[in-house]
C-alpha cells in the first residue's frame, strides 16, 4: 500500500495566481529544443548502427575469405600469382 498524506487547505488557488505560471511560448521553445535533441540522438544512433553493420559485414567477409583460402591452398598456388605461390609454399 502506498503512503499518502491528507492536507487541508483553507483557500482555493486563485486564477490570477495560476496565470503567473502560464507561458505557452516557453513551452514551445522547450518542445523545439527537445525535438532537436531527440533528432540528434536518432542521427547518432543511426550512424552507430551503420558503423556496426559495416563492421559486421567486414568481419564476416574477412573470416569467409580466410576460411576459403585456408581450405584450398593447392589450387590457389597452382593457378595463383607467382608472389602468392611463394607465400603459400612458405606457409
Amino acid at each position: 500500500m502506498t503512503r499518502h498524506d491528507i492536507r487541508f487547505r483553507r483557500q482555493t488557488m486563485s486564477s490570477g495566481r495560476i496565470q503567473k505560471h502560464k507561458n505557452y511560448q516557453a513551452l514551445l521553445q522547450r518542445h523545439k529544443r527537445t525535438s532537436r535533441m531527440r533528432l540528434m540522438l536518432y542521427f547518432i544512433i543511426a550512424i552507430l548502427m551503420i558503423a556496426l553493420a559495416y563492421g559486421l559485414i567486414y568481419y564476416i567477409s574477412a573470416t569467409y575469405v580466410d576460411k576459403k583460402t585456408s581450405r584450398e591452398p593447392a589450387t590457389t598456388s597452382a593457378i595463383g600469382h607467382p608472389i602468392e605461390n611463394l607465400l603459400f609454399t612458405k606457409l
Binding site: T2, R3, H4, R7, Q11
Partner: peptide, 11 residues
C-alpha cells in the same frame, strides 16, 4: 516521499 492530497475547504 509520501503522496499528497491537498484538499480545499471551499470544495
Amino acid at each position: 516521499k509520501n503522496i499528497i492530497f491537498s484538499l480545499e475547504e471551499p470544495l
